[in-house]
Design a binder for these strands. Structure first.
Lengths: 107, 107
DNA sequence: TCCATATTTCCATTTTACTTGAAATATTAG
DNA sequence: CTAATATTTCAAGTAAAATGGAAATATGGA
């Protein structure tokens, strides 16, 4: 993952409503949840919800799947994993330099 | 780390200039870098840089240390580590439910 | 003290993000 | 086809973030 892509993913998660949506979807696996039910659960106006779903989709953090007349959104674990990889990489690359002590995130 | 704190940290990193500042500081360990040199390195106007340093400081991602008439900023590994913990926790808590397959970020 | 330099604050401007009602689109059921 | 429901798009308003010039503050050196 590059810098720009990381900013996109971070920006998508850096918003209370979107983080709530993502966290709601994560435990549900590939089945996900319909737009309507997400809106009910989090008390969001349809247009507001649709806006945030588009943001998360654009960041590739969630994925849409049509089923009947409903659309299910589910978390995309791969992107989350890539972001974690990017951040860990940045956090730990300094170990090669001359740091006073290795950062905690490097285990 | 709670949801709200996570949003603050994510928002601090979800901006190209701030992510660049943070990534610049990470390999330097506790010594960090002066404001002036950060500004030179990234070609930032003093007011712009100061604004972003404040944002990163508020998120507790960087720390200031005065040395002579210079101020050195350095990365705060602890916050980075907490954020990674928060995200991993969220990413992997679903393993207890009924997911089709464990997400990649859970190893 | 007085000067020079480093950094921040203030302020105004511009840009970008968020919200929501209403209209449009899409899909299924009858 | 028509009606009903799910979701998105449009448009317009409000709020928040980002930028940078100029002034203010702080620190060390002469």
């Amino acid at each position: 993952m590059e810098n720009k892509a990381a900013v996109t993913v971070l920006a998508a998660l850096a918003q209370e409503t979107r983080l709530a949506i993502f966290r709601l979807l994560v435990p549900l696996g590939a089945q996900g949840m319909t737009v309507g039910r997400i809106g009910e659960t989090l008390s969001l106006a349809p247009a507001t919800l649709s806006f945030h779903l588009k943001e998360l989709t654009h960041a590739n953090l969630i994925v849409a799947r049509q089923e009947g007349r409903y659309i299910h959104y589910s978390a995309n674990y791969a992107t989350m994993s890539e972001l974690l990889g990017f951040m860990t990489e940045n956090c730990c690359q300094m170990a090669g330099d001359a740091p006073p002590s290795p950062p905690a995130c490097c285990g």
